[in-house]
Design a protein around this nucleic acid. Structure first.
Length: 312
DNA sequence: CAAATTTGACCAGG
DNA sequence: CCTGGTCAAATTTG
């Protein structure tokens, strides 16, 4: 309601701040469009005969037999042309991989060699209709801590147009402390895939993480606070980015390759007593907000924030 | 019932 | 050959 309005116009900018926009100049990769848009897909791909999964294990001795030829059309091998290097990539470490304002569809999961948890592969939910090349991978870090961290790698830029009003993420301002006791990890910790993201109303396993610890740095938050609660301005991005991009060695946040110490600091900041408003992204329809508030209300007996009211 | 996820197969690069 | 990334049928979820 009162929140969605500004959020709409701030959306693009907001995204830039909250997530590692692919447009950010990053140290790695550069390549001119390079891969551009490889041939969408060659339907001549392999024709797997099972592709099943759970509940279908009776199927034994599959490789014993003469497996059907791996590639039916050997001539079209190169058509595959996997786009390894996307036009841009960026990564960050966050405890809330879902809150990035975009909608993703999981298309695969893979156990990575030295990693303890599997890596999940997502692509923009509109990659099909609009051919949006944006992708991301989410992998839970190997920290046994109470607050699981995820390394999120974004690849490619979003070329899609999110015309759905419901997808506009909004930053909320709250003044509620998030104590470490209440700060439980998102549902099942052995699950490595945070499933769908923010805008997804589907949110299968109620993935809407209970953690509110954001990925924003205190500094960034301040900035966000400013323009999110007041009328929009166009300078904020500059302030936050300051030309360094989110991954610069700024005093702000240093995701990905950041030193463990800073991450720890961030963690403490968010799990400790509140010192400044915490912001969370939410969809315009407010489901996330709802969730968030409910949790806080349930765990704390603190007065609810005066800054906004509950939807529904 | 449609949409999203699961999960092993497939495949290309190193 | 090994490993990571993608595909797509089956299955789950709302």
């Amino acid at each position: 309601m009162t929140l969605g309005l500004q959020g709409d116009e701030l959306l693009p900018q907001l995204r830039d701040v909250l997530l590692p926009s692919p447009t950010i100049p990053t140290p790695f990769k550069v390549e001119s469009g390079g891969t551009g848009h490889p041939p969408a897909s060659c339907d001549g791909r392999r024709r797997r005969r099972r592709g099943s999964k759970r509940g279908r294990d009776d199927d034994n001795g599959e490789q014993q037999h003469e497996e059907p030829p791996r590639h039916s059309c050997k001539t079209s091998r190169k058509m595959k042309q996997r786009q390894k290097k996307m036009s841009s990539t960026s990564s960050l470490v966050t405890s809330v991989p879902d809150f990035d304002g975009y909608q993703w569809r999981k298309y695969g999961q893979k156990h990575i060699e030295g990693a303890m948890y599997a890596r999940s592969y997502y692509r923009c939910i509109r990659s099909a209709e609009q051919g949006c090349p944006a992708k991301r991978t989410v992998q839970r870090n190997d920290d046994g801590g109470a607050a699981p961290k995820y390394t999120v790698v974004y690849m490619g830029e979003h070329t899609c147009t999110a015309n759905d009003s419901m997808e506009a993420p909004v930053i909320l301002e709250t003044a509620v402390p998030v104590t470490s006791t209440n700060n439980k990890r998102p549902q099942n910790d052995n699950d490595t895939s945070p499933a769908t993201s923010a805008g997804s109303y589907r949110s299968t396993t109620s993935t809407s993480t209970s953690t509110v610890t954001g990925i924003e740095s205190p500094a960034a938050i301040s900035d966000i606070t400013y323009w999110s609660s007041s009328s929009a301005s166009s300078d904020y991005v500059v302030d936050v980015y300051d030309g360094c991009g989110l991954f610069g060695v700024h005093d702000s946040w240093a995701p990905a390759t950041a030193a463990a110490s800073s991450l720890q600091e961030m963690e403490d900041y968010f799990t400790g007593p509140i010192r400044s408003p915490v912001h969370i992204a939410a969809t315009a329809d407010g489901w996330m907000i709802d969730h968030f508030l409910l949790q806080l209300a349930a765990s704390n007996d603190q007065p609810l924030f005066p800054h906004f009211s509950l939807f529904s």
